[in-house]
């Protein structure tokens, strides 16, 4: 499996550390509810098909990426920088 990094190009999967679903980005504020925390840390849609999850380009540029993939075929469809998402928000 190869993962496209927006900064480094297409790289071997071994350069990346997998963290988990994009849900980890939806961090509740300190006023948040326990349900929000549950959704952030534990509960998952866990789709069979297209998913968006977080990968860390550990032995490359050390950026955090959101990778769009297919969990049934292992096809990698694209990636974006988590930092860009924050800029947009």
């Amino acid at each position: 499996m190869r993962i496209p990094c927006p900064l480094c190009g297409s790289r071997d999967r071994r350069e990346f550390y997998y963290y988990g679903s994009e849900d980890y980005l939806n961090r509740p504020t300190d006023q948040g509810t326990i349900e929000e925390l549950d959704n952030h840390l534990f509960l998952r849609h866990n789709p069979a098909g297209i998913t968006r999850d977080l990968w860390y380009h550990e032995t490359g540029c050390t950026s955090w990426l959101i990778v769009t993939r297919n969990t049934i075929t292992h096809e990698v469809l694209g990636s974006e920088l988590v930092a860009d998402r924050k800029k947009g928000a």
């Binding site: 499996m1 999967r13 997998y18 998913t51 999850d53 993939r69 969990t71 049934i72 075929t73 292992h74």
Partner: peptide
């Protein structure tokens, strides 16, 4: 293999 998957087959690493 460390990443979410329903493929029932793994990768080479």
């Amino acid at each position: 293999d460390f990443y979410a998957s329903y493929a029932a087959r793994g990768n080479l690493p």
